[in-house]
Design a protein around this nucleic acid. Structure first.
Lengths: 120, 120
DNA sequence: ACAATATGTCAATAATTGCTCACATATAGG
DNA sequence: CCTATATGTGAGCAATTATTGACATATTGT
């Protein structure tokens, strides 16, 4: 896990539009670029395309080409750098972190889906 | 958990210097601003001060005033927004996420401490 | 072949961000 | 009081980033 990899991931996650894109893709198995762009009224298609490029270079999404379409999906285990950083900083509250994740896993509750994803 | 809160947290974490500051503070109970700044040769004191302000506004660090000094510490459970986002996106790999956190918790291993924290 | 569709890329521009230098504030100690 | 110490703040500048519009590429259907 190199620094530049972490940089790319954290930089990618810094933009609320990109987090919204990631959430949107995560709600589906795959999503073509056009449908993703269609979800953002206030944004041009090319802007979304640029964001997808950044997410892809950060390894957060994968691209599958199918004819004219490019289908994007969330990379299965991409957040390793984020988790690694959190665990290194928040050693003191790791148990809370683990239980928070497990709770979410058990209940299927996804707190940020309620409001945060609609930020762009 | 409002959008602006998440924005502040993810934006704060986007900068490698700020992640390094956070890691550094996390290695101690508290650290005065001057000692934090002293760890960054390539950076002026005021730049570190600005970073500390951003981390504080994001709720990632706390400030305790003691005479002329301002001691900074890592906020106990600040990563909620990050965890919430990760759980919302990576529902499919939540068990892996939880076990990764638990492994780190059990072993005390902190992957990013090995290289990533020294990125600034 | 041609036109329409799906999408990426490039150049230019506007907005944001990080850094430094000078200055302000506050506290401690003679 | 006056000086040194610890730290924050604001203006200005350089670097980065997000967005757009025009153009390029690839694919499908007629």
């Amino acid at each position: 896990m190199t620094t530049s990899e972490s940089d790319a991931i954290f930089s990618a996650l810094a933009d609320p539009t990109r987090r919204a894109i990631l959430s949107l893709i995560g709600e589906h198995e795959e999503l073509p670029a056009g449908e993703i762009a269609a979800h953002f009224d206030s944004l041009g298609r090319t802007a979304v395309s640029s964001h997808l490029r950044i997410l892809r270079l950060a390894g957060l999404v994968a691209e599958r080409r199918d004819g004219r379409f490019r289908h994007y999906s969330v990379t299965p285990t991409p957040a390793d750098a984020v988790v690694a950083f959190l665990t290194s900083v928040y050693q003191n509250s790791l148990e809370q972190l683990a239980s928070a994740v497990q709770d979410a896993s058990a209940t299927g509750d996804t707190p940020l889906n309620r409001a945060d994803e609609r930020s762009a």
